[in-house]
Amino acid sequence: MSVHAEAIEEGHGTGSLGVPNLKLAMWAFLGSECMFFGSLIGTYFFYHDHSLAGPLPKDVFSIGITSISTFLLLMSSLTMALGVDAMRRGKALRSRNFVWGTALLGLTFVGFQVFEFHHFVTEKGLTLATSLFGSSFYVMTGFHGAHVTVGVIWLSIVGWMIHKGHFGQEKAINVEVSGLYWHFVDIVWIVIFTFVYLLEFAK
């Protein structure tokens, strides 16, 4: 099979740039996602301090709890990196454990978010319709949470494929690419946590 014919097998060829198709596609997609989250976060700040009714960010955020969930998400990037590394070195079971561990940490993060939303709605009286803050906060963090959820499902499937022996060292790219996505989602959260949560208390 020529180099070229091989490149057509979806995603698994190493093409003209010397980068596998799948990885290049993920980078292009993440570029697009930067614009997506950029627009959501931009909307949040476009409307910052424009709300006509309370509660305001300072009234609802609890940095302590969110710091814990942020820490868990950061740790999940570590486990993800370890999972990718293990697969590159051909240690499938170790990789599976780290990948599933990452998914579990991600799931915990989503759990925290559900708890946070629930708390804001029932205790603090902040709903989607309360104010510009409510609308832009929930939609922005909600779409981030949805991305984490997609990541959790994805990693669970990746872990399952490793478990079943479908992904071995020669297909480490599949784990690596899910890792790229995961790190991206994590970075978006760091931006949100820093600028939306922490900065609120810096003033």
């Binding site: 909307t43 476009f46 409307y47 424009h50 989607l128 104010s131 510009l132 409510g134 609308s135 939609v139």
Partner: peptide, 11 residues
């Protein structure tokens, strides 16, 4: 939501 609701401060 109230993103485009002028009466709620939407721009």
């Amino acid at each position: 939501t109230v993103f485009y609701q002028v009466s709620m401060g939407g721009d």
